[in-house]
C-alpha cells in the first residue's frame, strides 16, 4: 500500500466497482532477482486496464503471472475468482492472450491457423466455423484467408493474433504491446476494433510503450518502475495531478534557465530541465505564455500535457537498456 501516492482517490474510485482481477502483495523472484516487488492492483470488470513502465519495470512479468506463464512467488492473485496455479486450465479458458511475438504457425494459412487454434480450446471445425468467419470479417482478413503467414503484413499478423485470442469468447483479453511496430493505419484499425470489443463487456489488460495508445484505450492504469507500482489512476487524473493541463517546452541554454525561472516566479508551475529544453508544467498556461511573449527572447512550444510527460517525470529520462 505504501507505494501508492493516490491511495485515497483510488479507493473512492474503485470501491464501487466489481473487480475481475485482484492482486495483493504480488511478488516474483527469479533466483535472487526480484522482478516484481509486492504490488497490489484491482482490475474492474469491462474496463481497459493498462500497465505502463520503462523496460525492466516488471510489466511483462506481471502480465505473465496473470496468464500463468510465470508462477507467483508470493502474494495473492485472483482472476474471476480463480487462483493460479491450481485453477490454471480454468483461467486459460476465460483468457485471450495477445503476446508480444506473433507466434502464428508459419506453415499454415490464416484460416488454418484459426481452425487449429480453436481445437486447442476443444472446439471442432464445425463448432468454430461461424466464429472464425465472423472474426475474419471483423478484422478485415477475409480476403487473406488462404494466404500463408509469411506473406502477411505486420498489421495483418497482429490482427490475426487478435482474432485468434477471441475464438473461445474470452472474458478477459490480455494485450502485450498490441501495436508495436505497426504503421498508423494499422494501429488505428486495431484501436477501433478494441474499442468496439470493449462495449461488449470484455475486460482488457494492456501493456504498451505508446502513451497515446494508453491514453486512448485505458480507463485506468498503473505506472510501474523497478518492480513497483508508482501510481494508479485514470490517464486524465494522472496528468492533472502530476503535470497540470498544459505543458510549455522552452528551447533554452542551461545558463539562462535561472533567469527565466525568476521571470516566471509569480506563477504556479512545476518545471523540469533537460540538456536543451525547459519543461514548464502548469494550469496557468496563458499567463505564462503572455510573459514569454513579452520577454520575446525564447523559442517555445505550448501544448496540452500528455501521459508521456507524466511517464517521463515519474520514471526519469535516463535510458533503461
Amino acid at each position: 500500500m505504501r507505494v501508492y501516492k493516490g491511495v485515497k482517490d483510488r479507493y473512492q474510485f474503485t470501491h464501487k466497482m466489481n473487480y475481475i482481477i485482484q492482486a495483493q502483495n504480488l511478488v516474483k523472484k527469479y533466483g535472487h532477482f526480484e522482478a516484481v516487488k509486492g504490488i497490489d492492483f484491482n482490475i474492474p470488470k469491462a474496463s481497459c486496464f493498462g500497465f505502463l513502465g520503462p523496460n525492466g519495470a516488471g510489466k511483462t512479468t506481471t502480465m505473465s503471472m496473470l496468464y500463468c506463464f510465470v508462477r507467483v512467488t508470493s502474494g495473492s492473485l485472483s482472476i474471476a475468482g480463480l487462483t493460479p496455479p491450481s485453477d490454471e486450465r480454468e483461467i486459460k479458458k476465460i483468457l485471450g492472450i495477445v503476446p508480444q511475438d506473433n507466434n502464428l504457425d508459419p506453415d499454415l494459412s490464416v484460416f488454418e491457423n484459426l481452425v487449429v487454434y480453436a481445437r486447442y480450446y476443444g472446439l471442432s471445425l464445425k463448432q468454430s466455423k461461424n466464429k472464425i468467419e465472423e472474426l475474419l470479417d471483423f478484422f478485415e482478413l477475409g480476403e487473406k484467408r488462404n494466404v500463408r503467414i509469411p506473406q502477411l503484413s505486420g498489421g495483418m499478423k497482429r490482427r490475426l493474433v487478435l482474432a485468434r485470442a477471441l475464438l473461445h469468447d474470452p472474458k478477459i483479453i490480455i494485450l502485450d504491446e498490441p501495436t508495436t511496430g505497426l504503421d498508423p493505419q494499422a494501429r488505428h484499425l486495431i484501436w477501433e476494433r478494441l474499442e468496439s470489443l470493449k462495449k461488449t463487456g470484455k475486460t482488457f489488460v494492456l501493456t504498451t510503450h505508446y502513451m497515446d495508445e494508453a491514453e486512448r484505450l485505458c480507463d485506468e492504469l498503473v505506472l510501474m518502475d523497478q518492480g513497483k507500482i508508482l501510481e494508479q489512476n485514470t490517464p486524465h487524473k494522472l496528468i492533472e495531478k502530476h503535470i497540470g493541463k498544459e505543458t510549455i517546452e522552452i528551447i533554452i541554454d542551461n545558463q539562462k534557465v535561472d533567469s527565466i525561472l525568476d521571470h516566471l516566479s509569480p506563477f504556479k508551475f512545476t518545471w523540469e530541465k533537460t540538456s536543451a529544453r525547459l519543461f514548464i508544467y502548469t494550469h496557468e498556461g496563458h499567463k505564462i505564455l503572455e510573459k514569454l511573449i513579452q520577454l520575446n527572447n525564447f523559442e517555445f512550444l505550448h501544448r496540452r500535457s500528455s501521459l508521456e510527460d507524466v511517464f517521463l517525470k515519474l520514471t526519469g529520462r535516463e535510458l533503461r537498456e
Binding site: K92, I97, P99, N103, D105, Y117, Y120, Y121, G122, R164
Partner: peptide, 14 residues
C-alpha cells in the same frame, strides 16, 4: 524459433 508452444500453453493445454 516459432514459439508455437508459447501460443499453445496460452490455451488450456499443458
Amino acid at each position: 524459433t516459432q514459439k508455437t508452444y508459447d501460443a499453445i500453453i496460452a490455451t488450456p493445454i499443458s
